[in-house]
């Protein structure tokens, strides 16, 4: 059982041109810059908006096919939608919010409330049952929104920026909840702008730019070779644009020697992984070919690594261990030598 969508939709400035297939039990993350069409894609899959051409279907069930004038509205598709701002019904209690879908499908009030109550139990949110939505915190509201969409047993669950409206603590809880729910037989699509969420919560990642799918693949495939500047940036890698001539990449103000590749000469996108750059206080010995001097523009410490931002001529980010960084005794503004092996620079046509 698969959600299949191959469609074109004109939205003023942007034209959505999307091909995507998501299997039962699979989680797909859609990442992309603002205005790329991520939310519109979700709304189209939910039937809140219609396609101009193409086909949207769930297994053998056609949901939207303009060529045969077939269209199932959102109430006729087994789709759950968790909205970014949750969109709870303020005039109903939490319990009745969760029971709403069942009531709309003709289930009697007592039975609908019983099932809603069970679902809240499963999400350990039973204490919220009789609260009014306006009194809930962001994290609680999201749990309720999730319970509400799951109550009608959808085949497909669509989550629009599920963590954007949450504070840091509830974000952690929400991530854990989604992680626990993985593989529960739903086809899930999650829109996010956070690469870490995409990498940790999804089986596959779809990169969307300007209405088009620029890359789709497993997290490993994306990290190994991001196809566009955006994909590389969002993954925390260092994308570089330049012109390739043989093994030499000309960046304008300096050149780098790159590893083995199958690209022809001309415009190229190169990626340097932050962890593959070494820092030195003096000119390194031996003969790594890519060596240059720079100064430290900034230092960000995270739990496991130190991220050092270099100033020109090559403004990139470098990641080293805390111990390694302390041993160098460097501070912001200091001059530093940087080196990277040719084999650590991957290139792609473009």
């Amino acid at each position: 059982m698969t959600l299949s969508a191959e469609f074109v939709r004109r939205l003023g400035a942007v034209t959505l041109d999307v091909t995507v297939h998501v299997d039962r039990g699979e989680t797909l993350a859609i990442v992309g810059p603002n205005g790329a069409g991520k939310t519109s894609t979700l709304r189209t899959l939910a039937g809140l908006e219609r396609i101009d051409s193409g086909l949207v279907s769930w297994s053998n069930e056609v949901w939207d096919d303009p060529s045969s004038q077939t269209f199932r509205g959102p109430d006729e598709r087994a789709v759950g939608f968790v909205f970014q701002q949750f969109a709870l019904f303020d005039h109903l209690s939490v319990l009745d919010n969760v029971a709403f879908g069942l009531r709309a499908r003709g289930v009697r009030r007592i039975e609908a409330r019983r099932r809603a109550s069970e679902l809240l139990d499963q999400l350990s949110a039973h204490a919220l049952a009789h609260r009014a939505p306006v009194t809930l915190s962001g994290g609680e509201a999201q749990k309720v929104a999730l319970a509400r969409s799951l109550a009608v047993s959808p085949h497909v669950l669509l989550l629009d920026e599920p963590f954007a409206a949450l504070d840091a603590t509830s974000r952690t809880d929400a991530r854990r909840l989604l992680q626990e729910q993985r593989g529960d037989g739903l086809a899930r699509i999650l829109v996010t702008h956070d690469a870490v969420d995409a990498l940790t919560l999804a089986d596959r990642i779809l990169v969307m730019e300007n209405g088009r799918v620029t890359q789709i693949g497993t997290p490993d495939e994306l990290v190994a070779m991001p196809r566009t500047m955006f994909a590389a940036e969002i993954l925390g890698l260092n994308p570089l644009r330049g012109r390739l001539a043989g093994q030499v990449l000309d960046l304008g103000n300096m050149t780098l020697t790159v590893g083995a590749h199958e690209c022809s000469d001309g415009a190229a996108l190169a990626v340097i992984r932050p962890r593959s750059v070494s820092l030195h206080v003096a000119q390194p010995e031996g003969s790594p070919r890519n060596v240059w001097t720079s100064s430290i523009a900034g230092v960000d410490r995270s739990v496991d690594r130190v991220r050092v931002r270099l100033a020109g001529p090559l403004p990139i980010a470098v990641e080293v261990t805390h111990g390694g960084f302390e041993a160098l005794g460097l501070r912001e503004g200091d001059t530093v030598w940087a080196s990277v092996k040719a084999s650590e620079i991957s290139v792609r046509q473009g």
Partner: peptide, 17 residues
């Protein structure tokens, strides 16, 4: 807020409901 209306529709409510 029209997304509240959208939410109702995705939960299976007809336009009249």
């Amino acid at each position: 807020d029209q997304t509240v209306e959208d939410a109702a529709r995705t939960l299976g409510a007809s336009a009249l409901y």
